[in-house]
Simulated assay, not measured.
Amino acid sequence: MPKNYIDMDFVLENKKNRHLIILVHGLNGSESTWKGEDQRFVENLTKENYVKDNFDLALYVYGTKIIEISWFARIIRLLRGLINNKAKEDAKRFNVGIEKVSMPLVGQLNGYHEKYETISFISHSMGGLVTKSALTWLDSEILEKVYFFMSLSVPHIGAHLATLGAKIPVIGKNPQIMELKSMGKFTTLLNQRYGSIKIQPKIVYQWGIQDDVVPQPSAYPAHIPNNLTIATQDDHFSVVLIKNKRINVVYKRIMEELNIVTLPFLEIEADIPEGISFKVFIESILRSKRFNGIRIDFEGFTNKELNIELRESKIKSKSLVDFLIEIGELSINKMPKYIVEREKRTYNFTIKSIKNE
């Protein structure tokens, strides 16, 4: 794919998959940030059966280069393109600002989101700012589907190197470099816009102790809980390499989070033993490692109702909500009517009796 191309490139796609992972590269990056050799994310994620069975995987690729072409050269090339009827091709060759880069991503999500229950991002460096910018432009219907965002060496408040680079004539006119300046206007306004959106994904922030590009205060925004941060021994570029996925803490955390993302939507198949109570059976299912992180509360039931016994049977459901509803239909004595409510974008469920409503 040409370096100046702007599009969503699907590297894993199955019509049955209901979840989407989008990888977003950074400044001067390309699809080769994520794929092309054994240590890259695409090569590793596409070998995971859990990923293949549940997720589509896409690369958001856009034009970016450090040394920007001069305005005079732009005009000459544009005139040549008009004469040769290739103006559109030439237009793709120039850097545009981070917010403009994010707008086609917004358009892609508007077009693709209906297929998916959840959307997750893995973004490196400036790609994290592209991601945040896109999130500020999404409707709430789509934002509710964005569960997880892995921030890899992202300069959330800019980078000093960009501040220095902006002073070099051959680099300084690059709009992406200008917007990456430390504590600059763009990152300040972007963080304000992002902070004002009501629906935000879970972000896990990574910083490499050998990273000379993005300092820790920029990779970790202020007041982030420790359980949402990961310090690694990487530099700015090695973080996107997975030398050994069994011990790579970033890769392991991503896989853990992807597992949590899909929990409410997974198909469930189980055997119900004769005489087990409604509540005990549900709690026994939740104790399995597969459902670690799910919380279920019971509301409006008496102890007698929660202890109503189930008949021996097999149950297979398309999602956790369906599963919890269908269990009640397998009781020996009639269960009171109930509904299952899920707190939006969390893994907290309430089984609520409606017998008095």
Rank of each mutant, 00 (worst) to 15 (best):
K3F: 11
Y5C: 07
V11L: 13
L12W: 06
L12C: 09
L12R: 10
E13T: 12
N14W: 02
K16G: 02
N17I: 11
H19G: 02
L20T: 02
L23P: 04
H25N: 06
G29Y: 01
G29C: 06
E31M: 13
T33C: 05
G36L: 06
F41V: 09
F41A: 03
E43K: 12
N49Y: 11
V51C: 04
D53W: 05
N54Y: 08
F55W: 09
D56F: 10
A58N: 07
A58G: 12
L59R: 08
Y60S: 05
T64M: 06
K65A: 08
K65S: 12
I67S: 08
W71H: 12
W71M: 11
F72R: 10
F72K: 14
F72C: 03
R77A: 14
R77Y: 07
L78Y: 14
R80V: 05
K86W: 08
K86M: 10
A87P: 00
E89D: 14
D90A: 09
D90E: 15
F94D: 05
V101F: 01
L109W: 07
N110G: 11
G111W: 01
E117L: 09
F121Q: 01
I122F: 08
I122M: 04
H124R: 04
S125L: 05
M126H: 02
T131H: 04
T131V: 14
S133V: 04
W137N: 13
S140Q: 14
E144R: 15
F149R: 00
M150V: 03
G158C: 07
A159S: 15
A162C: 09
A162W: 05
G184K: 05
F186E: 02
T187N: 09
T187C: 08
L190F: 11
N191K: 07
Y194P: 03
V204H: 01
V204S: 02
Y205P: 02
D211Y: 01
Q216I: 14
S218H: 02
S218A: 07
T229D: 01
Q233V: 12
N248E: 08
V250H: 02
Y251D: 03
Y251A: 11
R253W: 00
I260C: 00
T262P: 00
T262S: 15
I268F: 03
E269Y: 07
A270T: 13
A270Y: 02
I276D: 02
I282Q: 08
S288I: 10
R290W: 00
R290C: 03
G300M: 11
F301G: 05
I308M: 11
I308C: 02
I308G: 00
I308K: 12
E312Y: 07
E329F: 15
E329C: 03
L330E: 10
S331I: 04
K337I: 06
V340R: 06
R342V: 11
E343N: 08
K344S: 13
R345L: 10
N348A: 12
K352A: 08
K355Q: 14
